[in-house]
């Protein structure tokens, strides 16, 4: 009977499809993005940040970069605190992605100074020689259109001020992109919470050890050269030659960073690599 009645058959097939759909797709709306899910410090995007996000979408950045940190040890160490549902309530669409050809960007905001991003977007290979990320210099050439951005803010129902719209005049797509990247994942004070303090005395475990200095050079090339230059000559960050810092003080700075000066902390390198780095830098003076 069923095999001979296409209309009845299609109704039953629809019912079969709808069971899983209702339970796993529709029902989560009862929990997700409710008040219980929200985080007070998470704010909507400002006009320039939202425009940056739309440019990120337009250029298909999500094809290579994810935006969600999983609660796994190696992942939290590499990128930062794991992602919470409440951090995404203003994301239309979501941009979690599916493949990390490049690194995850969920916690990028505040990691590097603006200057790093401008240079990196223009020419990634000038900072990370072996990267396969394309150059995006043309973002510098297009001015933002304040009225279309106002229209987008109205569509989204996000709050904005006339001041913010006026400030868009003279800004480029690159400015918007950087503004967006600096917002990513920084609405919750995770850096402050994750901060580690050094207890006890810092003693250089490999003073004058040539192999430690050689290893430190590799650590430097992978982690520091992009900002401080291949030969410590300085670029976005200052020159590191002739710093005259004590080993312990230098360790402290690299470990915790200089938040106001745009220098990220590198505590996740671990003590061994940090000491190798200290020995390398201080051997160069």
């Amino acid at each position: 009977m069923l095999e001979k009645k296409p209309v009845l058959f299609m109704l039953l097939a629809t019912a079969a499809i709808l069971v899983g759909t209702i339970i796993t797709m529709a029902m989560p709306f009862l929990w997700v993005n409710t008040d219980a899910d929200r985080i007070e410090t998470v704010t909507p995007y400002t006009p320039i940040q939202q425009e940056g996000r739309d440019i990120y979408i337009r250029e298909g950045c999500n094809n290579c970069h994810t935006q969600t940190v999983r609660p796994l040890v190696a992942e939290v160490l590499r990128y930062g605190d794991y992602s919470k549902s409440g951090e995404f309530v203003y994301d239309r669409p979501f941009l979690w992605g599916s493949r990390r050809t490049g690194p995850d960007l969920a916690r990028l905001g505040g990691k590097y100074p603006d200057a790093w991003h401008y240079k990196h977007m223009e020419s990634p290979r000038s900072m990370v020689p072996q990267t396969n990320m394309p150059d995006y210099p043309w973002l510098n050439d297009t001015a933002l259109d304040p009225e279309s951005i106002r229209n987008k803010m109205e569509t989204l129902g996000f709050p904005y001020t006339e001041e913010q719209i006026k400030e868009l005049n003279g800004k480029t797509e690159m400015d918007a992109m950087v503004a967006y990247l600096q917002k990513l994942g920084s609405d919750i004070p995770w850096r402050k919470v994750a901060e580690t303090t050094i207890v006890g005395d810092l003693t250089n475990p490999f003073p004058g050890d040539a192999s430690a200095i050689a290893a430190g050079k590799d650590v430097y090339s992978s982690n520091c050269a992009a900002c401080h230059g291949d030969n410590l000559e300085g670029m976005i960050g200052p020159a590191l030659t002739d710093m005259g810092m004590e080993d312990a003080d230098l360790y402290q700075v690299i470990h915790s960073g200089i938040p106001d000066g745009g220098m990220p902390g590198f505590s996740n390198l671990g003590s061994t690599k940090l000491w190798q780095l200290v020995n390398f830098i201080n051997a160069e003076k």
């Binding site: 796993t24 797709m25 989560p28 993005n33 739309d54 239309r92 669409p93």
Partner: peptide
């Protein structure tokens, strides 16, 4: 928002799911 730009009816985690 315009002829060639729209915003998803769902946000964040809901949109992902």
């Amino acid at each position: 928002a315009s002829l060639f730009k729209s915003y998803s009816a769902y946000a964040g985690t809901n949109d992902a799911n």
